[in-house]
Simulated assay, not measured.
Amino acid sequence: MLFCGINPGLMSAWTGYHFARPGNRFWPALHASGFTPRRFAPAEQEQLLGLGLGVTNMAARATARADELSAEELVEGGRLLAEKVALYRPAWLAILGVTAYRVAFADKRAQVGPQQRTLGATRIWALPSPSGLNAHWTPAALAEEFGRLRSAAFAPPRQGG
């Protein structure tokens, strides 16, 4: 599973850790949904690899708000992300920000949840942005959506019939 944020916030750029701003809800949602055995701190992001999880960003430029990125930056970020996925071949790509996903992959109708598009064999799930600025997604609702992804990603294979 590769989690992809939109771009580094200023705190993340300063610390070098993903989702480093204290109000960001990525780490709590990751734990509350069962992806991690405990709540990790941003400085522990390397420990995700041992759980089969990774973290990256769509765009490299740090901003205070994701809406400061241009459409061109998101489209280029989507292209580079597709290259990264082709190299590492995760089973799932979880993009944390459905609006950024819509722009980067020219899918204006995308909704939160599983997407029809794949990148090779990698399935895509659009998650809400965990930024504290995305307040209409409560921590409980975020954790529930992360949990839907976890259930889909780790569901037992269907039996033929």
Rank of each mutant, 00 (worst) to 15 (best):
P157L: 11
Q115H: 10
A121C: 07
F154T: 12
A121S: 07
H18N: 10
A94L: 13
A155N: 15
M58S: 04
S12I: 05
E68C: 10
V98R: 04
P22E: 08
P128R: 09
L149I: 04
S33T: 09
F3A: 01
P157H: 04
F26N: 05
A106P: 02
A41V: 11
G54H: 10
L133F: 14
L69K: 01
T99D: 07
M58V: 00
T56A: 12
H18R: 15
R61G: 13
P22Q: 10
E144G: 05
L48P: 03
L93T: 07
V85N: 05
S129F: 06
H18G: 13
A121L: 06
H136C: 04
G5I: 05
T15V: 12
R150M: 03
R150G: 02
A104V: 00
A20W: 14
E72A: 08
V55L: 12
E144A: 12
E72D: 15
A32L: 12
R158N: 05
A82V: 00
R61E: 12
L142R: 02
T56F: 14
F26Y: 08
G160T: 11
L10K: 03
L48A: 13
Q115A: 04
A121I: 13
L30A: 02
T15H: 11
T138V: 14
A94Q: 08
G5W: 04
S12Q: 13
T138E: 03
H31G: 08
A155E: 07
C4D: 01
G5L: 12
I6W: 00
L142F: 07
G97M: 02
G147R: 14
R117A: 13
R109K: 08
P42W: 05
A82Y: 01
A59V: 11
F19E: 15
L127A: 04
E76W: 04
A41Q: 12
F146P: 04
P8K: 06
Q45N: 14
G160V: 08
E73V: 08
G54Y: 12
W27P: 04
P156G: 05
L93F: 03
V85W: 11
F146T: 01
A62M: 01
A41L: 06
A59W: 02
R102Q: 06
L87A: 08
S70Q: 06
R61A: 15
Y17V: 03
E72Y: 00
A94T: 06
A100V: 08
R38T: 07
L133P: 06
R21T: 12
G9N: 15
M58N: 01
R61S: 09
K84A: 07
A121T: 12
S151L: 12
G147D: 10
